[in-house]
Design a protein around this nucleic acid. Structure first.
Lengths: 153, 153
DNA sequence: AGTCGATGGTTGACTTAGTCAAGTAACGGC
DNA sequence: GCCGTTACTTGACTAAGTCAACCATCGACT
């Protein structure tokens, strides 16, 4: 009984925390005139990438990508470059796209997020818990567990 | 550099965890034919409540509630009972509404959520971190920090 | 008493994000 | 050369939420 109630409260808390993070992200990128999804796409496009891959990476339907690509294209930020396989189109940042992406990255870097309220040690602990919660292994490749000094901020 | 990157990864992790929780909830309630928002409304309506209050509690625009109330009314689960203040309408569960609500509660109780992967101790720790992260004090009134045994209620 | 600003609820137009099904074009194995 | 699969597009649809405008009522104040 109580355990279940607990789950519910905690779930709510978790979702609230995530929403706050999302909102902070949305806020940051909107200052550059982007929607969160556009921003996510821009961030994903470090290098040319088939639309299908982008869909996978953003965990959404492929048909979504068409629209996002259209929007970013209308802004002159991406191009559809035909791939070797002539079915695929490689989404590629234009020069302007690279520029905007860098600006956006700076913007996000300069914004503060709810997570910044935690010390590095706490962040470590949180990461561990979240990974266990989502059923992921300790680390997927990045994040090779660092000594965790007491961060600034 | 690393601190900021860290934030980003962690933020993603947090959001992923929340999404998983949300999905589990959506899955559970959809088995009873409800959307998550309908379910949230149903859960909130332990007792008759002005639409405005429900909007506050669900942290959404009042105009949203109109629609949700309409849907639940169409299902015969709620009624708009005029309040003392004749502007307000008290959303009230019908007998059928009470029944469905109970079933739904059972359903949710019986479903497992990502959070259940954590031990009670881990859940405590997570709660603490999340509260700090969202800037909340330890507890808003409920949850007066207990020794985390299998508690009452 | 009467006026007026604030409040509760509704409506309609709009946005974001996502799904799904169907269609076209190209790929690759047989 | 056919056929099943894959990549992208399109269009219709849904869930959810925002915003502005509106009506009725409230309550405070002159």
């Amino acid at each position: 009984m109580s355990d279940r109630e607990r789950s519910k409260v905690l779930g709510g808390l978790l979702i609230a925390a995530a929403d706050a993070s999302r909102a902070a992200f949305a806020e940051a990128v909107s200052e550059q005139g982007f929607t969160p999804t556009q921003a996510r796409a821009l961030f994903a496009l470090v290098e040319p990438m088939p639309m299908r891959s982008l869909a996978d990476q953003m965990a959404c339907d492929a048909s979504n990508i068409t629209g996002i690509a259209d929007q970013l294209h209308a802004l002159g930020l991406v191009q559809r470059v035909p791939g070797e396989d002539r079915r695929v189109k490689l989404l590629t940042l234009t020069a302007a796209g690279e520029r905007r992406r860098a600006q956006l990255e700076q913007q996000v870097r300069d914004s503060t997020f709810p997570i910044d309220r935690l010390t590095t040690a706490e962040q470590d602990r949180l990461e561990e818990l979240l990974r266990k919660l989502t059923g992921e292994a300790t680390a997927p490749g990045a994040t090779p567990r660092q000594p965790a000094a007491t961060s600034r901020r």
